[in-house]
C-alpha cells in the first residue's frame, strides 16, 4: 500500500515537472491589453527581427539583439521598441525610442530571463503601426540565478560608464556604439524569511544617449535588464561631436510595482567623436 502511494506521488511529481510548453497566455490575456489596448499588432519579422538564444545559458545574462529591417529616414522610421519577457515577475524590460538620427534602429542588450518564456519586441513606426517579433527562450536551470554573481563588486563600481566604438568611424554613416553602465540593477526579489538582507529594487530606469545634443536612443528600463546594463545601438556622426549618455537610477519598495519609488542618482558619460 505504502509502495503504491509513494509510486503515485513520484509519478505526480514527474507529470508536473518539465513543462516547457510554448505558452503565450501571459501575452494574450494580459500584456497585450496592458500595453496596446485596442491596437492592431502585425506579427512579422519584416520591420524588426528579434534574435535570442533558444536556451538561456545564464538566466542572469541573456543577450538579445533586435535587428531593424527598414532604414531610419525622416519619412519613415522606427520610433519606439518595447521589449517584454512574458513570464518574468515583472515582464517589462524597457522601451527604447529612436530617431532618424539613430541611422538604424538596431539594438542589443542583456536581460534576465527567469523561466521558460517568450521574449518579444514590438516596434512602433512613426506612422503609428505596430510590428512584433518574438522568440521562445528556454531557461537553463543549473545552479545560477537571474541576479548578478558578485553584488559587492558591482556596488563598488556603481555609476561608472564607458562607450566603445570601432577604431574607424565612418562619417555620415550609421556607426555602432556600445554603452557600458556599471550598476548592480538589484531586482528586489528576495526571501522575506531571510530578513537580514532586505534590499529594495534599485535599478537604472532611464538612459538617454545623444550626439551633439540630438537624441539617438532614449530608453526607459527596468529590473529585467541584467546587472551592468549594456546597450549597442547606432548613430550617424557627420562631423566631430560629443556622444553623451545620461542615466538615472531609482529605488522601489516592491520588485513588481512601480507605485512607490524614489528617484536616485544621475550620471553622465561623454565621448568626443572624430570621424
Amino acid at each position: 500500500m505504502i509502495n503504491k502511494i509513494i509510486e503515485a506521488l513520484c509519478l505526480a511529481l514527474i507529470a508536473n515537472g518539465a513543462l516547457a510548453a510554448e505558452d503565450e497566455s501571459a501575452w494574450t490575456s494580459q500584456l497585450k491589453d496592458q500595453f496596446f489596448a485596442g491596437r492592431t499588432i502585425t506579427e512579422s519579422d519584416a520591420v524588426i527581427d528579434l534574435d535570442a538564444p533558444y536556451r538561456a545559458e545564464d538566466p542572469a545574462l541573456v543577450p538579445l539583439k533586435i535587428i531593424s529591417k527598414i532604414p531610419q529616414t525622416n519619412d519613415k522610421y522606427i520610433k519606439k521598441i518595447l521589449v517584454l519577457v512574458d513570464k518574468n515577475p515583472f515582464p517589462y524590460v524597457g522601451e527604447f525610442e529612436f530617431t532618424p538620427d539613430s541611422g538604424k534602429a538596431d539594438l542589443a542588450m542583456r536581460v534576465r530571463v527567469n523561466t521558460y518564456s517568450f521574449v518579444r519586441a514590438i516596434a512602433e513606426t512613426n506612422d503609428g503601426k505596430l510590428y512584433m517579433s518574438k522568440k521562445f527562450v528556454k531557461a537553463s536551470g543549473g545552479c545560477s540565478a537571474p541576479i548578478g554573481a558578485d553584488l559587492d563588486a558591482a556596488m563598488k563600481r556603481l555609476g561608472k560608464a564607458k562607450f566603445r566604438l570601432s577604431d574607424n568611424i565612418k562619417p555620415g554613416e550609421a556607426n555602432e556604439a556600445q554603452l557600458f553602465i556599471s550598476h548592480p540593477n538589484i531586482t528586489g526579489m528576495q526571501m522575506d524569511q531571510v530578513t537580514r538582507f532586505v534590499k529594495k529594487s534599485h535599478f537604472v530606469n532611464r538612459v538617454n544617449v545623444s550626439f551633439n545634443d540630438k537624441p539617438i536612443l532614449t530608453a526607459k528600463t527596468d529590473i529585467a535588464i541584467s546587472a551592468d546594463p549594456n546597450f549597442r545601438f547606432y548613430f550617424i556622426p557627420e562631423k566631430n561631436g560629443i556622444l553623451k549618455a545620461e542615466f538615472t537610477d531609482i529605488s522601489c519598495q516592491s520588485p513588481t510595482s512601480r507605485a512607490n519609488c524614489k528617484a536616485g542618482q544621475s550620471f553622465t558619460e561623454t565621448l568626443a567623436i572624430k570621424p
Binding site: 540565478a145 541576479i147 528576495q190 526571501m191 537580514r196 538582507f197
Partner: peptide
C-alpha cells in the same frame, strides 16, 4: 540564500 532562494 535570500537573493536566490525563492528562484531555486
Amino acid at each position: 540564500m535570500a537573493a536566490r532562494g525563492q528562484f531555486y
